[in-house]
Design a protein around this nucleic acid. Structure first.
Length: 426
RNA sequence: GGAGGGGUGGCGGAGCCUGGUUGAACGCACCGGUCUUGAAAACCGGCAGGGGCCCUCGCGGUCCCUCGUGGGUUCGAAUCCCACCCCCUCCGCCA
């Protein structure tokens, strides 16, 4: 059986419902084709299984005959024919199944009902905001200018050591990065109840497929090792969500809330103009991730709570932000609902994404085969969620820009002073 | 990286040499029942996952697949052969 992301039984029973939901993403799902292939597949399976039953019976008879010391040459010959027929039918079934997989694996998660309509990011809906855009009585500078002047961000030497879009952090810049990581983790473990993990930074292709980073139309953004079936971690979602792959979790352990700091790597070849400056879009970046494994009934409220946990970081840092609900057309492939947190960035004169919090329902769990037994009964897929809490580099940029002074120094947010061991970067 | 051993159901652990009532003994855990004032013990029973078909649609019937993964041999594979993955022990290397 192939790895299916959507429930194939649901596709069978409620194709219209799913087609409508996927249409909200601007997708015309080929569900008629699916239905036809599915019908054919079941036909072939039924025939193959009939023949297998016959063969099994024949084998038993041959065994019994041998016990009795009787010869069964013609029975064996007949069974041999059956086996050949079965082999052909199994091949046919596998072929049809591959075609079905081609369709099903490319179907994204249908949006939840409370996801706003819309085609792209312009249709995303602001659900709340905190603080207001920072105003300056001087001309504010972008973080790459400030950072270079303070000699805490060195992009030229980062590029020398690796290549463009790798950055060398120095002195207070390096300390700020470390301070943020510790602050995030302390907050989520100490006050929000998450368990801290530190997973491998290299992940195999099974893991990548499990969370949906690898597929026909995705995967070229990842750094792949040449001599091994391993990739550089593109987001902690991958190594963290995969820890329970192929497991049946104990119901009493749910929900499981974990957080992890992990460097992340993405090729992002040829990305757009403005983001090429500074820390906003790097090939290597640090991120603290929040991941939840929950009972299906609770995933909606778990998403709200997770989003608030991520927002709390920005509030403590006193960085202005807004929370938007992604519209159906802007949702990622595996997400059924997503809130983006956008922090105010003076150099952009706009809000910029700093966290993305999603509910995947059972979409990932189905691929990952993570289940639990409700009431000790039959296994059922759990729901998974994740969100950044937060992207570290972008937080650094936001702090440098929002807390800058006219003389080029940068105030350290109150919540971070203990971690920085300083009140100001100058 | 080299040598050897091993991957079986929620867990432990038989079976593999000598292919055929072993989809899997036995034990533990778990669920139900008897017993008991209650509990424990004892005893009786149940207890893997996925899929197809049928239906008086239910905690139903039936069939198929799955003993690390993928191939192969065979009428028939947990059992034989090949490749790969993983784990353990020893050696090497190293933080």
């Amino acid at each position: 059986m192939g790895e299916l992301m959507l429930d194939i039984k649901k596709l069978r029973k409620q194709p219209e419902e799913i087609k409508l939901a996927l249409a909200r993403r601007g997708l015309d799902a080929p569900l008629d084709e699916f239905a036809e292939l599915d019908r054919k597949l079941r036909e072939v399976i039924a025939e193959a299984e009939e023949n297998k039953a016959l063969r099994n019976k024949a084998s038993d008879e041959i065994a019994a005959a041998r016990q009795a010391g009787r010869d069964s040459e013609e029975k064996i010959a007949a069974a041999r024919k059956l086996s050949e027929k079965i082999k052909a039918l199994d091949l046919l079934a596998a072929d049809i199944e591959a075609q079905l997989d081609d369709i099903v694996l490319e179907l994204p998660n249908p949006p939840l009902d409370d996801v706003p309509d819309g085609a792209d990011e312009h249709d995303n809906v602001e659900v709340r905001s905190w603080g207001s855009p920072t105003r300056f009585d001087f001309e504010p500078r972008p973080h790459w200018d400030i950072g270079t002047a303070l000699d805490i961000i060195d992009q030229e030497r980062g590029a020398k050591v690796a290549e463009s879009r790798f950055t060398l952090l120095k002195g207070a810049g390096a300390r700020l990065e470390r301070a943020l990581i510790n602050f995030f983790l302390d907050l989520h473990t100490g006050e929000h109840g998450y368990t801290e993990l530190f997973p491998p930074i290299l992940v195999n292709s099974d893991s990548m497929r499990g969370t949906g980073q690898l597929s026909k139309f995705a995967g070229q953004e990842m750094y792949k090792l040449r001599d091994d079936d391993l990739y550089l971690n593109p987001t902690a979602e991958v190594p963290v969500t995969n820890i329970y792959r192929d497991e049946i979790l104990d119901e009493k352990d749910l929900p499981i809330h974990v957080t992890a700091y992990l460097p992340s790597f993405r090729r992002e070849a040829g990305a757009a103009g403005r983001d090429t400056r500074g820390l906003i879009r790097q090939h290597q970046f640090n991120k603290v991730e929040l991941v939840k494994f929950v009972r299906p009934e609770t995933s909606a409220e778990e998403l709200e709570a997770l989003t608030l946990n991520a927002e709390e970081v920005l509030k403590r840092l006193e960085l202005p932000f807004r929370t938007v609900s992604l519209c159906a057309g802007d949702l990622g492939f595996a997400a059924a609902k997503t809130y983006d947190l956008e922090v105010w960035l003076p150099s952009y004169d706009d809000y910029k994404e700093i966290s993305s919090c999603s509910n995947f329902l059972d979409f990932q769990a189905r691929r990952l085969n993570i289940r639990y037994r409700p009431g000790g009964g039959k296994p059922r897929f759990i729901h998974t969620l994740n969100g950044s809490g937060l992207a570290v580099g972008r937080t650094s940029a936001a702090i440098i820009e929002n807390y800058q002074n006219e003389d080029g120094s940068v105030n350290v947010p109150e919540a971070l002073r203990h971690y920085m061991g300083a009140e100001m970067i100058e």
